[in-house]
Each structure stands twice: as structure tokens, then as C-alpha cells.
Computed example of a mutant assay.
Amino acid sequence: MDTEALRWFEMVADGATVTEVAELEMRSQPGISRALDRLEAEVGAELFQRSGRLLTLTPAGAAFHRHVSAALHRLDDGIAAVQQLVSPETGTISVSFQTSLGTWLVPDLIGSFRAQHPGVQFDLRSKADEHVTAVGARSVVDLELSTLQVVAEGVVWRPLVREPIRLLLPQGHRLAGRRSAAIVDVADDAFVTLRHSSLLRTHLDRLCQQAGVKATVALIADDLPTLRGYVASGLGVAIIPARWDAGAIEPSSPRVHYLELTDPEAERIVGLSWNEGRRRLPAAELFREHVLRRARTGRLPRPVPIP
């Protein structure tokens, strides 16, 4: 079928008159009408019924419209994909990321990349369940930033930077004047933590297990700002990723204290993952190389030291 006729059909089906379509497309009104007549002949049913100057869809036209819209969207996606192949300086890169990386790593990587490639757009997706990779076999995501060290067929994981895990205490806590502590030092305290879908919660369980203690969970927060708020209000202690430099939007409060954790595994490795079986368009490949190069040359943000 003539794709122009399909686009004109969609415009009329969405409420435009034949005259408006002709003016917009710079075609003659009889030419648009003949194209729609030919389309009806090809489909084998009347698609429109006339109501004054307007054409409204028949039941057959309404059924046809749903499929035409989907087909044209797919066609436009295909054209966009070809344009990306021709020019890697355009297009959209889909990136999944762990929420806690959204205040420092994601802005640094995208900002530094777009300074060189301003025409590239990003589809950013925060992970709901941090234990599941976003670049599995059926995924449409190009790249993933996470502390999950993926072990799956076809998935490649590369380390980028080590992220220290700190102890977060409320003002007036008995350990607040110290620079460092171990998990065993707060074994009798109530903990504020994230949900089980968070890798930070898993990290707390592992640190406690290694120290031979069991954390008493008082409150569960949905995100890190809420967790900090609970601790600042004196509702418990918590483990939390380090604050980062490079102008990261990382809220702090005079009512909380960060301490170094001396436990052997009080850190996690942030990495980049992708699926080798999924063909990436040039823009996504450029970003992947940019991320790895930035990590290799030591240009990623650094954690803020404990004062």
C-alpha cells in the first residue's frame, strides 16, 4: 500500500478534513480524495462516512485505524534506526541504572558525553528490582549501570569504580565523635534500611553475617533521601553509599554523621553491563566506549573523604 495514503488516512481518522490535509501536505484536495478512494478499494471496505465537511470512521475504518497507527509507528522507528546507523551523532540510548547512582555517576557520564555529542538523547530507566539485570536476552536496554555483577549468558560486565559503604548515625549517637567504626559496634542499634529489592539491603545482611551479628530493622525506606531523613530524626542507624564529589546532588544534614566502615567488604563495585547478543546502534556503542574510557583514565567522580 502507498504509505502516503496511509498517513493521510490516519490524519483524517484523527479529525483533520481533506482540505486541511491537502494544505498541510501541499497536495491537491482531489488528489488526497482519490488516494483515500484507492485505499478503500485495496482494503475492500468503506473506511469513512461523510458527515457534512467531515469524514468519520466506519466500524471497518476504526478497526483498520488501530493497525495502521501501529504499522506507521513501527515504520517511523525503522526509519529512525536507519538514520542512527547513518549518523551516530543522533538517536536515543537506553540506559538502566541503580537509583543510588543517579545523583553522581549518571549525571557525570551523560554530561561529559553530551558535551561531545549534543544531538544524542537518552532514555533513562531506574531499576525497580536491583537483583535482576536489565540487559537480559529479551531486553531493549542498551547498557546498565549497577553494582550487580551480572553472571548470565551473553551479558558482559565491566567494573568502573569502587563505591565505599559508610555508616550513617544520628546526631548525639554515642559513636558520632569517631571517624570510623565496624558493624559490630552498632549491633545493638535499630537499623533503618531499604527494601529487599535493594542491593544495599543485601549488603547489610552480608556485613552482619560476616560480623556474626543480626541487624534489628526498625524502619524500611523506599529511597536514600527518606533513609537519611529517618536517621536524622534519630530513628535508627544505617549503612549508606559514600557521598561523591563533582557537584553531585547529594543531600546532607548537620543532624547525621558519616563514619568509615572498617569491615573488610564495606564497599561495592559499580560496573557497566551490556548484552553481546543485542546489536547496539552507533550512538550506544559510542557511549559504551566513553564510559569505559572515563573509568580507565580515572576521570570518574571520587568519594568525599570523612573529615
Rank of each mutant, 00 (worst) to 15 (best):
H290I: 06
K127H: 01
D37R: 14
R302T: 14
L300H: 05
V141I: 15
E289C: 05
A134N: 04
L85C: 13
G212S: 08
E10G: 07
L72G: 12
F122D: 02
E260D: 15
S146M: 09
N275V: 03
R278H: 15
W244N: 00
E89V: 03
L167T: 01
P225A: 09
V237E: 01
G111D: 07
L105Y: 06
A128S: 12
Q171H: 14
L109T: 00
A137H: 13
V156L: 09
Q149C: 10
P303C: 08
F191K: 02
T103K: 08
L219V: 12
H290G: 07
R299T: 11
A62P: 00
I220C: 07
S51N: 10
V304P: 00
T262A: 07
W244G: 01
L200W: 07
S197N: 12
F48N: 08
L199D: 03
R125V: 05
R66M: 07
E267I: 00
R158I: 06
S87Q: 14
A232I: 03
H67A: 10
R206P: 02
H117R: 15
T56Q: 13
Q149G: 02
L224R: 01
L124R: 04
A182V: 05
G236H: 03
A266E: 04
F48S: 06
P107A: 12
S253G: 08
E265S: 11
V140S: 13
S100D: 15
E4H: 12
S180N: 10
I79D: 09
E42S: 10
A35S: 14
G277S: 12
E130A: 08
F9E: 00
E89L: 14
V184M: 02
D76Y: 06
I306C: 04
S198P: 05
H196A: 13
